[in-house]
Design a protein around this nucleic acid. Sequence first.
DNA 1: AAAACGGGGGC
DNA 2: GCCCCAGTTTT
Length: 224
Amino acid sequence: MVAPIYRIGRRKASRRISAVIDRLNTSYKRHELAEISGSDPFRVLICGILSARAKDTQTAPVCRKLFELADNPASLLVIPKAKLKSIIRPIGFYNQKTDALRKTCRILVENYEGDVPETFEELVKLAGIGRKVANLVLSVAFGKDAICVDTHVHRITNRLGWVESNDVLDTEKQLMALVARRRWRTLNYVFVRHGQECCHPLSPWCSRCPIEKWCAKVAVTRCR
DNA sequence: AAAACGGGGGC
DNA sequence: GCCCCAGTTTT
């Protein structure tokens, strides 16, 4: 166990951050949703909407099935609403997610000629897109310097002792100041994977954790 | 049985 | 800021 990063020197902190991300990156080489969506803006957007409060293992098959039927907003709108619902049902929240998908696709067709807008302000105006998904799209689809903080990133970075915060937005700000920009994109994927495989909310498997020696283990049983 | 799941929207 | 959404898997 190590001291939290906000209590050690800047240079040492920066080395530790690199080490952690490198190690996670080799431990979790595959990111299923990332492989499905690639960097295609429409697909990243749809994966983002569907993945809210759902597990990757559930979301991935749904995204695959959906992209077989439609890989752009116009063709998604052709799918009957009932059919769309039945596809989304397994991951829960299917009424909201179906409506959000259709509404967003209508906006894309009507206002953006079927393309996905490239600014945060425009993205969050779409249905089913909040801060997290907007940043995901900016980062993954458009290669912009956005950092995407979800509950996994929040929980893990707090446990590691990288930031000290109860608030996701605050965690996002602290991480932007702490982590090198070129790492932002991978950070989200490796932490999500790590959160699902190992660093669970209530009982993390520290004994099989690849980065345990760099973890401050702050609030291990509390952080969500 | 309960908790968890890559949040977002309406109020 | 609070509460709801909803079905499936894991503990």
